[in-house]
């Protein structure tokens, strides 16, 4: 006997136009924060007023990485850690397009860490969204570079002995032009940040502290999704424009959130254009030196 189809398309949800509805319900666990971020991203893409034919979403491997498979836009689910390299190629081949990278903390900043650093350094015009759930959710909850010191994971059953990265500080130090962090419950502010990040020219980075009740919460005495979501929000303090080095994630103290960086730098494509038109700046300052020497000689001849 064939099972009845899952409730026919009725009633139609307002986000259905950008969802691959045949794949919904998605695989994310009950109470996983990734779905909230995904919902917010869809709203942001709509609000940013872009031509949706020119938007692509790229992700790597992990629970978060499944976003690329659920959005009804051009999208690509790359191999683990390689979302940014794929997005780089896409952006260089189609500079008119908007490329959004959405992936997990492990994917973007463990195995993919060097790609992240160098894309920010070169100021590639990408929007990078990192769902930070403090562990490798998909593979059962191993230690990630974001796992707080002392937190339990499958690979650190006594608690992590490592200091985690501050992703926002890292992004800013590498040269990102837009850096923000929110929790998954700061939905309106997150959506605003995503719109700004998408519209920003250059490397923009938005980190979202999101509950992973199944792999992370369960091992750290917070099983209920609502409790995890609420805890991250309750412990957060908003500090816009704060130096991201001071924007710490300290569970015993504060989780600092806000928009930390919004600045302008020439992008990789701008510079690439200059070099190819033979208009790159005189990086050694030789021209300057020659003029100075000429001036000195003219002075001596008087």
């Amino acid at each position: 006997m064939n099972p009845e189809p899952i409730q026919a398309a009725l009633p139609c949800h307002p986000q259905d136009d950008l969802l691959r509805t045949d794949r919904i319900p998605h695989i994310w666990c009950s109470g996983c924060g990734i779905g909230i971020v995904f919902n917010s991203l869809i709203t942001a893409i709509k609000k940013s007023g872009l031509n949706q034919d020119e938007v692509a979403v790229v992700s790597g491997i992990g629970c978060t990485g499944r976003m690329a498979g659920y959005i009804a836009l051009d999208s690509f689910h790359t191999t683990h850690g390689r979302a940014i390299p794929f997005a780089t190629g896409l952006k260089l081949a189609r500079p008119q397009g908007q490329v959004i990278v959405a992936s997990g903390d492990g994917d973007l900043l463990a195995i993919g860490g060097n790609h992240f650093i160098h894309a920010a350094r070169r100021n590639l015009d990408l929007t990078v969204i990192c769902v930070n759930n403090f562990n490798y959710g998909m593979t059962g909850g191993q230690l990630a570079p974001s796992t707080p010191f002392g937190a339990k994971t499958t690979t650190t059953p006594l608690g992590s002995p490592d200091e985690p990265f501050n992703f926002c500080a890292l992004a800013a130090a590498c040269g990102a032009v837009y850096v923000a962090r929110w929790t998954a419950l700061h939905i309106r502010r997150l959506t605003t940040s995503l719109v700004e990040a998408i519209q920003k020219k250059g490397f923009s980075f938005v980190e979202i502290l999101a509950p992973c009740p199944t792999a992370f919460g369960r091992r750290n005495q917070i099983r209920k999704p609502v409790e995890l979501l609420r805890m991250y929000h309750d412990r957060s303090v908003v500090r816009n424009d704060l130096d991201p080095n001071l924007a710490v994630i300290d569970f015993a103290g504060n989780l600092v959130v806000g928009k930390f960086v919004d600045r302008t730098r020439t992008t990789f494509l701008d510079n690439y254009g200059l070099v190819n038109r033979r208009e790159a700046p005189d990086w050694l300052g030789l021209e300057h030196e020659r003029l100075r020497e000429e001036k000195a000689r003219a002075g001596a001849g008087q």
């Binding site: 949800h13 307002p14 986000q15 259905d16 969802l19 919904i24 319900p25 998605h26 994310w28 109470g31 996983c32 924060g33 990734i34 779905g35 909230i36 995904f38 919902n39 917010s40 709203t43 419950l185 939905i187 309106r188 959506t191």
Partner: peptide, 13 residues
């Protein structure tokens, strides 16, 4: 529409 924004499943609006 907050329920719509917070639902991770696109199940309420």
């Amino acid at each position: 529409r907050f329920c719509e924004a917070i639902c991770p499943e696109f199940a309420i609006f």
